[in-house]
Structures are given as C-alpha cells and as structure tokens.
Computed example of a mutant assay.
Amino acid sequence: MIRAADIQDGRLRGDEPRRIDPRVHEANRRSRLETGDVVVVLVGRVGEAALVEAEFHHWNASRTVAVIRTREPDEAAWLNLWLGSPAVRAWCERQATASTLQRTLSVTALRKLPVPIPPAGLRAHLLRAMRLLEEKAATNARITECAMQLSDAHFAREASDGTPWPERPLASLVHITAGTAPRPRPDHDGAMSEPGTAFVAPADILQSTSPHLYATERRLPRGKEGRVCAPGSLLVASREDGVRAVMNHVPAAIGRNVLALEPESVSDAHWLLHELRSRSAEMAATAQGSAGRELSRKAFAATAVSWPPQEVREQFARLAGRLRERARIAENESERLRELRGRLLDGFLSGTFPKGPLPDDQGVQPEGGLALSGPQGIS
C-alpha cells in the first residue's frame, strides 16, 4: 500500500512497504494503482507528486494519497511536472486546512487546480529536457544510497570483528533531551516565515532518505524555539517498525516525540549513528503508545551499547565522513538540478523556452484540466 510517506522528492519509494489484506485490496478497486497514474500527497507535505512506475502496478493507495489517471502518458508526465513546480506547491498549501497535527488537502480542492495544457509537440520538447535532468538526479540519488550502504557495511564489519568491547548505557555516552518545541504555524499563504531555526518533527526523521539532515520544511521564529540542538547531534524518532536516527548539520529545535542525543565528539556521533541504525527494530521497544511513536527518554538512556576503543571510533569516523562528503556533493548537485527544473518550467510557461518555434507551436493554453480518478484510498 502506498502512503503519503512513500512519496518523496518526486518519486515513489517501496523499500519499506505497508501491506494490507488481499480482501481489503479487492474491496478498494478505485484506489488500485495503474502504471502511469499520478499520486499526490493529501496529508502533510500536501501537493508532492510522483508518477506510478511498473514496479507499483496494482498496489493500492491509502486515504492520504490522491490518484490521478490521465488519457495519455505524456499528459501524466506533464501533470507530474506541473504539480512539482513551486507555484503549484504554494497553491496546494493555500488550499490546505491546518490542524494541530498536520495540513490536509481535500480532493475537492485538488480538482480545482488550474492546469495549463501546452500543445503536444511543445510538451514533448520540454519533457525530453526534463527527463535528462531526472536521469542525472537519479544517478546522484544512487551515489548517496551507495555511500550510505558502504558506511553501514564498514560499521557492520568493525562491530562484528569478535573483539569483546565493554558495554555502556547510552546515558553515559551522550546527553539526551526530549523535544518540547511548539510546532510552527503556517502564515496566511501557507509558507513558513523566514528567517528562523529549523524545526524537526518526527516526520522529518522518519521520512529522511539520508542519515544526515541538512534542512527541514518548517522553521520557528527566533526567540520562540527554546533549546536548540547544535549541529552534530543525533535526532531520533520512532514508529512501530523501528527507530530512525539522523545527524543534524544545522542548529535545530526539536518537537514532541523526538529525542536529541549530544555526543562528546564527532567520532562518537558517527559510531552511535550507525549503532542506532543497525539496531532499529530492536530499539523500538523503548517507545510507547499503540503506534510506537512515543519514545521513552528513560528507557532509551538505559540502552546498553558495545563501546570500542577511541582509535576504532576515530578510524571509522574518518571513513564515514569521507563517504558523507561525497554523498553531499551529489545532494547539492541534485538541489541545483531541482532549481534548474523550476526555471525551465517557468521559462517554458512564459514563452522563453524552447528557443525558436516548433512546427506545432501554438502557444500554451492558459487553463485546462485533467480528471481525477479513484481519489478514495484505504483507511
């Protein structure tokens, strides 16, 4: 089953799928996915979209996701591109309703989204250019994934070399703080005011594709963030299937159900980050509540870890640090590609891309529409 959390950075992720009973799947045929559908987040990061690839054919969609079915593949690709533009994301934010927990975009509101429909020839020209950017971004994502896997593999080798290391409780290795910062409230246009301090909610950790956190979507105004975690801290959140940890690289205020672990050194931070990653499912026992999201600071602090000598930790940190730097280069390039994607789309809609007329260049229609199909997901 696809959930809102499975739609990230314009792609569907199926590495941690939730499963449903086949009878539930059969009873909810309207939300069954077809290759080429466009799925849109309705709860949380409203408006984020992705194309359904063959891998997800006949999966189902939860009620946190809208399913859009178009007549032609190019229409779906264009709609997915349009939904990913900053202007549309801002439109979705303005249409969303806020609650104490998260923002929600209704299917009724999404149906009213104006969609410009360019002629097929013009559209194909732009989509070819966008596919080149997406292919490069996919390569960068693979680089980041490989760097993370290599770090995990080297940690596993070091941790399993048979050396009997002493066990120490986490409380003796880090200072642990429970999050209390208030969740930011969006202003009138749905965007967070700038400047401010990065606000980290459990979703920022649980939905991160990297163990390193460089930015968040929401910020708290200066003076209202309370205690701020310094860069190099480990931020931890949990759900029923395991604990997730990231190392933050910006000052951050943490919200409820987030723990901040502040190690004594960078080498300690790298080692503990991978220790937590390797024991994700086991450490879910330190959480409370039916969904396993309420981390117990006391239980977490009492967790014992095998603690290697300083030279082992420092040697691992040097290797993990180099891999992180390579991954960050790829991530920075992908961020620039996303900016370029937005500029190309803006230029296309304003008539400055492509250079020179195409045979079927009739201009871009100011408004059009594509029908929503199967918007109801599974509860």
Results as ranks from 00 to 15, higher is better:
Val266His: 15
His274Leu: 06
Ser210Phe: 14
Leu345Ser: 10
Leu213Ile: 06
Gln310Ala: 13
Pro354Ser: 04
Val364Ile: 11
Ala138Cys: 05
Pro17Ile: 08
Gly242Val: 08
Leu150Phe: 13
Leu344His: 09
Thr216Ile: 10
Val40Asp: 00
Asp361Thr: 07
Leu127Lys: 02
Ser265Thr: 12
Leu42Ile: 05
Arg227Asn: 04
Ala49Leu: 01
Arg69Trp: 06
Pro17Glu: 13
Gly342Pro: 02
Val266Arg: 15
Pro22Arg: 05
Arg13Met: 10
Pro166His: 06
Met247Asp: 01
His57Val: 00
Val65Lys: 05
Asp204Val: 10
Glu217Ile: 05
Val312Cys: 09
Gly10His: 04
Pro114Gln: 09
Val39Ile: 02
Ala191Trp: 15
Arg218Tyr: 09
Pro166Asn: 10
Arg279Met: 09
Ala330Arg: 04
Leu132Asp: 11
Ala181Val: 07
Thr197Val: 15
Ser62Pro: 10
Val115Trp: 07
His188Thr: 03
Asn140His: 14
Arg13Glu: 09
Lys112Ser: 15
Ile205Gln: 01
Pro263Phe: 11
Val228Lys: 05
Thr64Asp: 14
Glu72Asp: 13
Arg63Ile: 12
Thr139Trp: 09
Asp21Glu: 12
Asp204Ser: 15
Ala171Gln: 11
Leu110Pro: 08
Gly44Asp: 05
Ala371Ser: 13
Ile68Pro: 01
Gly242Ala: 08
Leu337Ser: 06
Arg123Glu: 00
Glu167Tyr: 14
Met148Ile: 12
Ser160Asn: 14
Ala327Thr: 00
Arg45Asp: 15
Leu127Asn: 00
Cys146Glu: 13
Gly363Met: 02
Leu110Asp: 06
Cys229Val: 12
Gln365Pro: 00
Leu259Thr: 07
Thr144Gln: 12
His154Ser: 12
Val88Arg: 03
Ala191Leu: 12
Val266Ser: 13
Pro118Glu: 03
Arg322Pro: 02
Ala129Met: 14
Gly179Asn: 07
Met148Trp: 13
Ser151Leu: 02
Val107Lys: 10
Ala90Leu: 14
